[in-house]
Amino acid sequence: MRCFEDFVCIFVIQFVTDASKLLSLLKTLGSNSTSTTISTVTSLMKKVNGMQCGIALVKK
């Protein structure tokens, strides 16, 4: 729970998980693309050794 000066409290729940399989899928899809932008992003992702993704749920 986070409270601010005007006494407004916000409840935050965060979930984070390993996304290595998602990273592998994106690398595979990107390697078959003809777009230069997607190819550039794919080449940068090849240097990533792990990735986490998550979501934050906020109740105001």
Score class of each variant (00 low, 15 high):
C3N: 10
C3H: 04
F4D: 14
E5F: 04
E5P: 05
E5K: 12
D6H: 08
D6W: 01
F7L: 12
F7G: 00
V8H: 13
C9H: 00
C9G: 00
I10S: 04
I10M: 05
I10H: 05
F11R: 10
V12D: 08
V12E: 13
I13E: 14
I13M: 09
Q14A: 12
F15D: 05
V16N: 11
V16G: 02
T17W: 05
T17D: 07
T17Q: 08
T17M: 11
K21G: 05
K21M: 07
L22F: 03
L22T: 07
L22S: 11
L23A: 03
L23N: 06
S24V: 01
L25V: 05
L25P: 00
L26Y: 11
L26N: 06
K27G: 01
T28I: 12
T28V: 13
T28Q: 13
T28E: 15
L29K: 05
G30F: 01
G30T: 00
S31W: 07
S31R: 13
S31M: 05
S31G: 04
S31L: 09
N32M: 13
N32E: 15
S33Y: 10
S33M: 05
S33A: 11
S35I: 00
T36Y: 06
T36P: 04
T36E: 15
T36V: 14
T36A: 13
T37L: 15
T37Q: 14
S39D: 12
T40R: 12
T40M: 12
